[in-house]
Design a protein around this nucleic acid. Structure first.
Lengths: 139, 139
DNA sequence: TTTCTTCTTTAGAAACATTCTAATCTATTG
DNA sequence: CAATAGATTAGAATGTTTCTAAAGAAGAAA
């Protein structure tokens, strides 16, 4: 995404039918200014604090979900205790570092999933998520 | 797995260096007697109650984790608010029904993941998890 | 069997992430 | 500017999971 310009961000927010409030713009900057990010609510809250923006946790959650509904973010489920949000919404997969809890993109082109078996009756694919869990080699 | 015989179950528990207590045996029966299952702690607790076995939730969690460490169960991460435990510990993947929260196995042979890109420096694969999220076709 | 040790279970408290509530505040529109 | 619809917030509430400390059960040794 890589949206540096505040005006672009504001347009993006408006296009999502959301009002460009101080908090929302600040969060959008933190999320989208520096390119692809994988972030938890708690960490985004911390970054907002550091940046001198007072935002409540409730607002962090509200906005993460609103951005996700608008297709600006994608939720990645890798950890049963925390939610990660990914600013890269195009097709791709993930490495998950078990020790650090860090996520890393795997380009869609770098991995191939095929011969998906027949789907359960009456269902359609919503997404295919591949998570390659990696850990440090212990010597 | 499909372990019907109580004696087999007891052996399985002993082989995992665990004591065959009343609660542990009852949980093992619920988990392993009827073949492949995908279950949450809460649901296992409910089933134990129904079966007339009094087990605390703490014990449910203790045992699910101990069985997992022993390789008798595998934790499947598909939902950021709940943990699922799978009695099928051999290589395979999952369909996840978004509406019902139900999990369904995809045999390893029915799905192929290839050309996994070079791993991050100093790491090794711990597992490759494919989750095909499906939802009911809305007409 | 009796005793000793180690492992288990448990109730309840605590921790943690997330959602809800209802009041206040802000952006937008007329 | 006034009215309204949307946004933010503190704090309470929820839901899952873990922790604590005490009491109970299993295994080993004599």
């Amino acid at each position: 995404m890589m949206q540096q310009d505040p005006l672009e961000l504001e347009k993006m927010i408006r296009d999502a039918n959301l009002r460009p409030t101080k908090q929302r713009i600040a969060l959008a900057e933190l999320l989208f200014a520096d390119g692809n990010r994988h972030i938890t609510a708690e960490r985004l809250h911390g970054e907002a604090m550091e940046a001198g923006v007072t935002v409540s946790l409730a607002t962090i959650y509200n906005n993460l979900h609103q951005f996700t509904s608008a297709g600006l973010l994608r939720e990645v489920v890798v950890d049963s205790s925390r939610s990660y949000f990914d600013t890269n919404v195009s097709a791709h997969h993930h490495f998950f570092h078990e020790e650090t809890g860090m996520l890393e993109d795997i380009p869609d082109s770098a991995l191939n999933v095929d011969s998906i078996p027949s789907l359960p009756e009456g269902t359609e694919i919503s997404s295919v998520d591949v998570i390659v869990r990696v850990s440090n080699i212990r010597s």
